[in-house]
Amino acid sequence: MICDRCYFNTNCQYIGRNKKSKVSGCSCFKDRDLVVELKCKVGDTVYIADGWGKKVHDFLVNKIGVFDDGRILYYQGDFEQPITPDLWGKTAFITKEGALRKLDEIRGGAL
Rank of each mutant, 00 (worst) to 15 (best):
Y14Q: 11
G16V: 09
R17G: 10
N18P: 00
N18S: 04
K22T: 14
K22I: 15
V23W: 15
V23Y: 11
C28F: 03
C28T: 10
F29K: 12
F29M: 13
D31S: 00
D31P: 02
D31M: 01
V36K: 02
E37W: 00
L38S: 03
K41C: 01
K41P: 08
V42L: 05
G43W: 08
Y47V: 04
Y47P: 14
Y47M: 01
I48R: 03
G51R: 13
G53H: 07
K54T: 03
K55I: 01
K55T: 11
V56S: 01
H57K: 15
H57P: 09
D58N: 06
F59Y: 15
L60A: 09
L60E: 02
V61G: 00
N62M: 04
N62P: 00
K63N: 13
G65I: 01
V66G: 05
F67H: 06
G70L: 14
G70M: 12
R71P: 04
I72Q: 14
I72Y: 11
L73D: 14
L73E: 15
Y74P: 00
Y75N: 13
Y75D: 08
Q76C: 05
G77C: 11
G77D: 12
G77I: 08
G77R: 07
F79G: 02
E80L: 14
Q81P: 07
Q81G: 14
I83Q: 05
I83G: 09
P85A: 10
P85T: 10
D86H: 09
D86Y: 13
D86R: 12
L87Q: 10
W88H: 12
W88F: 08
G89S: 03
K90D: 08
T91W: 00
T91F: 00
I94V: 15
K96H: 05
E97R: 01
G98M: 06
A99K: 02
A99D: 10
L100T: 08
L100V: 13
R101V: 07
R101C: 05
E105M: 06
E105C: 01
E105V: 02
E105N: 06
I106N: 08
G109Q: 14
A110T: 14
A110R: 12
A110E: 09
A110G: 07
